[in-house]
């Protein structure tokens, strides 16, 4: 029969050990960042895979989220006669919170899972061992370009998400519900502060990019060398990545006021 105290102890030890593993892995990745040769071509390739190929998903999702925000915001604001502030409501909520967070969740699902699956499959088919036998460091050759690419593309994808969402809110608020276009844009411009809102949003997206890059490469790199291992790596990337983004969003907001 299982003892709840020993179960709790085992789970705590497992959690601490996992935290130690990912910290060591992260420091390995950072150390390799400064080792020659720079993996520029492989990083550009990864930027294309993780960033460019996510554009359609990010743009359409952003538009849909903005449209919903526009509709819900208008319905609520009109009760208080404040519908002229729709641009500010849509813009601020997107720039400060929804943009980086929803982009992070979408990128975790699309790009993070594919990174974990690709590296996991390389483990299962001994491709990483093949690199080691050629005296090529797999963290430098495979992991680093993907982690760097993820960190670089997240702020850009988040910005594209926000722009498409603001446009979605504009279409619903102005074109469908008859709000004045100038009022929508003016309230948006008046309420958004560059340093506090825009820089904060980019910073958040950048941190989320690092988190997704680290978790997805770590899950793939440490996966069991079989099909079940690849599947577990993919699933755990999405689960751990999403939860970590949501919690870290709270802490970033609480600690830095971003």
């Amino acid at each position: 029969m299982s003892n709840p105290v020993s179960d709790l102890g085992r789970q705590t030890l497992g959690f601490v050990s996992a935290l130690g593993n990912i910290t060591r892995f992260g420091s390995d990745v950072v150390r390799n960042l400064f080792r020659p040769p720079p993996r520029i071509a492989r990083t550009i390739e990864a930027i294309y895979d993780l960033g460019f190929l996510s554009l359609v998903l990010i743009a359409t999702s952003g538009f849909a989220v903005g449209a919903v925000l526009g509709l819900q915001g208008y319905t609520t604001l009109v009760r208080f006669g404040a519908e002229q502030s729709l641009g500010a409501v849509v813009g601020l909520s997107l720039i400060r919170e929804l943009g980086p967070v929803l982009t992070g969740l979408l990128v975790t699902g699309r790009a993070g899972s594919s990174v974990a699956a690709e590296i996991g499959a390389m483990v299962a088919t001994e491709q990483l061992d093949g690199l080691r036998m050629m005296s090529v460091n797999p963290i430098h050759f495979v992991v680093l370009p993907k982690a760097v690419a993820m960190t670089l593309v997240m702020p850009l994808l988040s910005a594209i998400f926000i722009v498409c969402a603001i446009y979605g809110g504009y279409i619903v608020g102005v074109e469908l519900l008859g709000l004045d276009g100038g009022a929508y844009i003016a309230s948006l411009e008046d309420s958004v502060d560059f340093r506090e809102d825009i820089v904060g949003s980019v910073l958040k997206a950048w941190i989320f990019g690092m988190i997704i890059g680290l978790i997805s490469t770590h899950r793939g790199y440490t996966s069991a060398p079989n099909a079940a291992g690849v599947s577990r790596a993919t699933t755990s990337t999405v689960v751990i990545g999403s939860v970590t983004i949501l919690f870290s969003d709270y802490f970033i907001t609480a600690l830095w006021g971003v």
């Binding site: 390389m122 088919t125 001994e126 491709q127 061992d129 093949g130 690199l131 080691r132 036998m133 050629m134 005296s135 460091n137």
Partner: peptide, 20 residues
Amino acid sequence: GLAEVRTRLGMLFQNGALLD
């Protein structure tokens, strides 16, 4: 150090292990 030794080794893996 292992990477240094491995420059003197070649390995043919069961399924090739070529980068796909």
